[in-house]
Design a protein around this nucleic acid. Structure first.
Lengths: 211, 211
DNA sequence: ATTGAACTGTGACCATTATCACAAGTTCTT
DNA sequence: AAGAACTTGTGATAATGGTCACAGTTCAAT
């Protein structure tokens, strides 16, 4: 796929400005990353900002002792606001980004960020919106963590993942899910069994189906 | 205090542009709100954006059944990004904002937001930064909620509040704290006693001192 | 000074979640 | 086909936090 075309198709809000299209087409580069590639490391500087065209990226917060929590996914049409801010401020990232499903991204060099912010209100609105969306997601997570039990949190997670995949089937081991939710494998296994008993899911090896 | 003066003193990042100073001085209004005033309601539209000059505002997420969690405080030099976004998008707020300590704010009518975004890269950077700061705070909260117990969460909360107050003494009842942390009074009472036994705080009626 | 309201302390009990221990099933490799 | 590595199931136990019940304290107002 050609870059201008990809841009127009997946970033209509930005592509409403034809000068912006030209700009991004000039200095942006289409790039592919395989599943499991770490594209954002804690404590490292950011050189490029990804605009996701296809696939899925997951963003984690890491803990000192190696544990982690999934914060949110970045899907086509979205960008990584942590990268944008780390780029603007020349600071290190404080979260981890990993490719969940092979992605196609438009990479923007960080030194173009100032031009974009200065010249394109569309860009600024897009970034505002991106921040706002992820902010809402994380706030919702705080709410769930505060008021719901693990079973509900797990079920929410499965529904959201199924929605992103556009498939009722989730291919993950119990251990992987435990890692993403910051829990332990045994707990997740038991809760999944409970969900199965209550007719909410059906289970098979590395395969969970939403009913 | 005069508005231009307040603006220059508390918003140096914005005041670096003298045209922006003139703009905000023209359409901004200095206003005072008493403690406990609700300045942002869930499910209502936003008409003005506050730039906080003095005092403290707290932002909550509410639950269906009346429970709530404190998300973060807004202190002098900061603005309410939820209001900014609700204003830009003409949408309803999805959090609650209450005055924690009497505040002085510069109020900006929401219909000026587009001009600000279009004409002032400083404004855009300021909003990016505001989003980024609160985003980090909420992400940190997710981390604490996932990996720490209530005792640690409570102690963190006390330290943060003391820091904002610039005082080692926190004037809050156990019930108020329980509400802000989405817990129950008995649990908070017991944990505070435990912290007292371990020499971290000393307790008196509606008064907690960090040691 | 007395009363009423708000605040705090604490025992008892239960639900949820974490951890340890181990068994059993599945898939992959050689 | 055998073994290794990964995956899932489940009992036992302990820690954490929420709920109920009730007693004792402090404060403010009449």
């Amino acid at each position: 796929m050609e870059i201008t075309e990809a841009f127009k198709e997946y970033f209509p809000q930005l592509a409403s400005s034809s000068i912006l299209i030209n700009n991004i087409s000039n200095f942006g580069v289409l790039h592919h990353f395989d599943k499991n590639t770490v594209i954002l490391k804690e404590e490292t500087y950011v050189k490029v900002i990804p605009l996701v065209v296809s696939g899925l990226i997951k963003i984690y917060k890491e803990e000192e002792n190696g544990h982690e929590v999934l914060l949110y996914y970045i899907k086509p049409g979205e960008t990584c606001i942590v990268s944008v801010m780390a780029g603007e401020k020349n600071e290190k990232a404080n979260v981890k980004g990993v490719v969940e499903e092979d992605v196609e991204v438009i990479l923007i060099p960080k030194n173009k960020l100032y031009d974009l912010r200065k010249n394109f209100p569309e860009w600024n609105l897009y970034i505002f919106n991106s921040f706002n969306d992820k902010f809402d997601e994380v706030i919702d997570m705080v709410k769930v963590l505060t008021f719901s039990n693990k079973e509900k949190r797990l079920y929410n997670f499965l529904l959201k993942k199924a929605d992103l995949n556009e498939s009722k089937i989730i291919h993950k081991s119990h251990q992987e899910i435990a890692n993403e939710l910051g829990s332990s494998r045994e707990v997740i296994s038991r809760l999944l069994k409970k969900l199965e008993k209550n007719g909410k899911v059906s289970l098979a090896l590395k395969k969970i189906k939403i009913l």
